[in-house]
């Protein structure tokens, strides 16, 4: 069921770090970039960003992560967007591709946010059909990432992990598990994050995101502007013991530190896997 190769430890590549990667050879095994940053206006264009990415691809495997598929939306799939993404896949040849299990807008409007889905049977039916259509169109499997949330629809009849598991199983998609998002949502909605991790189809988890968040006291906000917190590292370590190593990366979108600092943070994940292999 796992279709992606194990590449090890990666980072989400953001603008300030391009020069580090172009000039040096930092210790990362692969890099994830946001697909939308390389899409031209109407059609895919070989703009300066894409040139740079293709240069980087000579040194590191690239993974493409989208934010606009809006797989959960009640609107029809955005074929124009999908065509541009598919063209991008053909040029960049990413090792695997992903987007989020969420919706970003409806009636043609876009909130540009990763919004929560009502966890219902009809939503599962709706989304599974769409994921299959997307995978057919791209001619490849996609990974879907769990998003962090602040609101849950009272009409939901599934837990988030049941919903994610069922969508992934029925559509034969992979899971990009964001451990920080699990933690943030568990705090905000009062569920047990370990139960979440325990009950996912583990062989579908093909990539892991680690990130930081902001603690507002009564709730957490997923800001990607801090280092990974201890509780999230503990969840990650527990997960590794349960399912073994998975492609793991750190996401940082704000207050971006020097590249070496992120590489050092990533080394902690590396060390955890190494330690586990030794004790196994």
């Amino acid at each position: 069921m796992r279709n992606t190769p194990y590449l090890g430890f990666g980072l989400g590549l953001r603008n300030p770090h391009y020069k580090d990667v172009l000039k040096g050879t930092p210790k990362v095994d692969w890099l994830e970039v946001i697909s939308e940053n390389f899409l031209g206006r109407e059609n895919l264009t070989a703009g300066p960003g894409l040139d740079r990415l293709l240069e980087i691809r000579e040194k590191y495997p690239i993974v493409l992560h989208g934010v606009s598929l809006s797989i959960g939306s009640a609107d029809p799939l955005n074929k124009k967007y999908m065509k541009r993404v598919k063209d991008l896949y053909e040029v960049v040849k990413p090792v695997w591709v992903s987007d989020h299990l969420c919706w970003t807008g409806v009636h043609g409007l876009n909130a540009h946010d990763l919004l929560p889905i009502p966890y219902t049977k009809s939503a599962i039916r709706h989304i599974v059909g769409r994921v299959k259509a997307v995978q057919d169109f791209y001619g490849r499997q996609i990974l879907l990432e769990n998003v962090s949330s602040y609101a849950e629809f009272s009409e939901s009849t599934y837990t988030e992990w049941e919903f994610l598991a069922e969508v992934a199983d029925k559509s034969d998609s992979g899971i990009l598990l964001d451990v920080n998002n699990v933690y943030v949502s568990s705090f905000n909605h009062g569920f047990d994050p370990y139960q979440y991790l325990k009950n996912l189809p583990h062989d579908r988890i093909q990539q892991i995101h680690l990130a930081g968040h902001t603690n507002k006291g009564r709730y957490l906000i997923d800001t990607h502007d801090h280092p990974v917190v201890e509780k999230v590292w503990q969840l990650y370590e527990w997960l590794l013991q349960e399912i073994g190593p998975r492609n793991t990366m750190i996401e940082r979108d704000d207050h971006i530190p020097p590249f070496e600092e992120l590489v050092a943070e990533l080394d902690r994940a590396r060390a955890l896997v190494k330690r586990q292999k030794r004790t196994a």
Partner: peptide
């Protein structure tokens, strides 16, 4: 298209845009 999903999303989007 799921009518339930549309109804919930319609409500949600209106609430955040309002």
């Amino acid at each position: 298209m799921s009518r339930d999903v549309l109804k919930s999303q319609d409500w949600f989007l209106n609430a955040i845009r309002s």
